[in-house]
Each structure stands twice: as structure tokens, then as C-alpha cells.
């Protein structure tokens, strides 16, 4: 599986005085089982980019290739393709509409043309992956808690069996525990199903803790694409782009500036703890 963009450019209101390039010359390759964090300030082009990845928007110039085939090429089956790249929008719980949880999750697979039995089987599998207990299958989606609703909405996309799951701010508005629970299930889904997950987030701490590749988009261009530890050591550049680094990266930078022999970067509390303990134990200070 490979999703590739080539010189992807999208211009809003072309030919008018409001014309604005939302993304420009974006080259990306997305492969199997990656866990990608996509970050960028509001208006940086993130949403425009992800809408190209499943063909919701058609590029002004450049191409999106699914396993080498242009998704807007002649004879390309875009409906089938959208099953491969699932997009979970912000506040997806607002899109729940059915009378019970199971029916809501069945809606997608049924639309793909699957039989009732197949759709139900898929829905149950997706709900279990998303961590929704069987007892809730017959409940109205509107009786669930915020976190549960969001899981049901994610299950609705999972039931389409996408190879790539794109989630736009899946933790916005959730309490810290709810945030951890959602991110843990997303992480589990990825490791169990070998899907690729693209997490769009404004929380640098969440991105740092979970993903293994970070893509930073700024003014419609890819500024950084690489390993989180490396990217989050560019604190000043990230701040210039209206972003920030995880809290832990700031702590380590301050320690380094205060003369502590910190080498490299850590992304989680545990990593930083071990790094600091190491310094004290080795008697380096």
C-alpha cells in the first residue's frame, strides 16, 4: 500500500482577488502501518491537505497516487478508494444520527453495498476495536458520554475497513483521561490491524507521545517531515510557525541552558525522568 502526492497544489478562489494557495508543491509518501502526526497552525493547510488524501478535493495542479494510480485518472474507482482512506472529522459525534449505536456503525458498510449480515459483522468488529462494550450496541448514540460518542463515530469509519485512518483533532474537548483513552485505542487499532494512522492535532504533547513520524505544515508547505525526537528539538522554528514543542522538550532545554549535561531530546515524562536520573546517578553534576 502506498499513498503518494506529487507537487500537490490547491488554490482557493483562483482567478479572483481572493485567490490563495492553501497548499503548494506538497510531495509526500505514506506507507503501511505508519503512525503520523500532522501539525500546523490554523490556516496552515492541514485540512486542505487531508481532504486531498481521500479525494474530497481535487488538486489545482499535481496528483494523488494510490498504489501508483492517479485518483483522478480515467477509470479510477474513487468510491472504492474512499473506503481505503477513512477520514474522521473534528467533533465526529455531531454526525451520529441513527436510533442505536450498532445501526449507526452499520451505515457506512451498507453504503459500500455489503449485505446486512456482513455490515453487522463489520460494525461489531469495529465497535470492539474502538473499545465500545456490547451492552451499548442497542443504546441511543445520544445517551452516551462525550468520549463514548466519539468512539462510536470512529468505529463508523473503521467499519469501512480503511487502510489509512485520518483523524482530525480526535481529542478536542475531552478531559485528560478521555484523551488518553481515545489515543490508546487508536494506538491499539494501529498495532492490531496494521493500518496507517494520521493524527491531526494541536497538542504537541499527544503527538510526541504516540506517533513515529511528524509532518509539519506551514503556509501550505511541508517544513519538516521526520522523527518526532528530532523535529521537536527545533523549538524556535516551531514557535515561529505558531506551534510549540512538547512541555518535556522545554524542560530539557532549560536544564541544558542551566548547565546540566543533557544530550538529545526526550518526548515523554518517563524518558526525561530516566535521562535526569542517569545524570544524577553517574555523578555528572
Amino acid at each position: 500500500m502506498e499513498l503518494r502526492t506529487e507537487k500537490l497544489t490547491y488554490e482557493y478562489d483562483p482567478g479572483t482577488s481572493y485567490a490563495k494557495k492553501a497548499i503548494e508543491d506538497v510531495d509526500l509518501v505514506i506507507r503501511e502501518n505508519e503512525f503520523i502526526g500532522l501539525i500546523g497552525h490554523t490556516g496552515s493547510g492541514k485540512s486542505t491537505l487531508i481532504q486531498h488524501l481521500n479525494g474530497l478535493l481535487k488538486a489545482t495542479s499535481g496528483r494523488v497516487l494510490w498504489n501508483g494510480k492517479d485518483i483522478f485518472g480515467d477509470g479510477f474507482d474513487r468510491k472504492e478508494f474512499r473506503g481505503h482512506v477513512g477520514l474522521v472529522f473534528q467533533y465526529p459525534e455531531y454526525q451520529l444520527f441513527e436510533t442505536d449505536v450498532l445501526k449507526d456503525v452499520c451505515f457506512g458498510p451498507k453504503n459500500l453495498g455489503l449485505s446486512e449480515a456482513e455490515a453487522t459483522a463489520r460494525a461489531k468488529e469495529a465497535l470492539s476495536l474502538a473499545g465500545i462494550d456490547e451492552k451499548l450496541y442497542k443504546a441511543s448514540p445520544f445517551e452516551l458520554s462525550g468520549g463514548q460518542k466519539r468512539r462510536v463515530a470512529i468505529a463508523g469509519v473503521l467499519a469501512m475497513k480503511p487502510d489509512i485512518l485520518i483523524l482530525d483533532e480526535p481529542t478536542a474537548g475531552l478531559d485528560p483521561k478521555g484523551r488518553d483513552e481515545i489515543l490508546d485505542s487508536i494506538s491499539l487499532i494501529r498495532s492490531e490491524t496494521k493500518k496507517t494512522v494520521i493524527l491531526v492535532s494541536h497538542s504537541m504533547d499527544d503527538v510526541a507521545q504516540y506517533v513515529n513520524r511528524v509532518i509539519v505544515i506551514n503556509k501550505g508547505h511541508i517544513e519538516f517531515d521526520g522523527e518526532p525526537r528530532e523535529i521537536f528539538s527545533h523549538i524556535e522554528e516551531l514557535e515561529e510557525m505558531g506551534l510549540s514543542a512538547p512541555a518535556i522538550s522545554y524542560i530539557l532545554r532549560d536544564l541544558k541552558e542551566a548547565g546540566f549535561p543533557i544530550e538529545g531530546n526526550a518526548l515523554t515524562v518517563e524518558e526525561a525522568r530516566d535521562m535526569i536520573l542517569g545524570i544524577f546517578r553517574r555523578g555528572h553534576v
Partner: peptide
């Protein structure tokens, strides 16, 4: 944490270091 909340990262790091004996 029991109340499904959290503490700032720096507080958490200090707490963890204390647990390990600093």
C-alpha cells in the same frame, strides 16, 4: 488522576523523580 484529571508535565516529572528517590 482518580478524578480523570492530570497535572502539568513538569509537576508529573518532578513527582516521578521523587518516586525514584530524588
Amino acid at each position: 488522576q482518580r478524578l480523570r484529571l492530570d497535572v502539568p508535565e513538569v509537576t508529573k516529572l518532578a513527582f516521578e523523580l521523587k518516586q525514584k528517590g530524588l
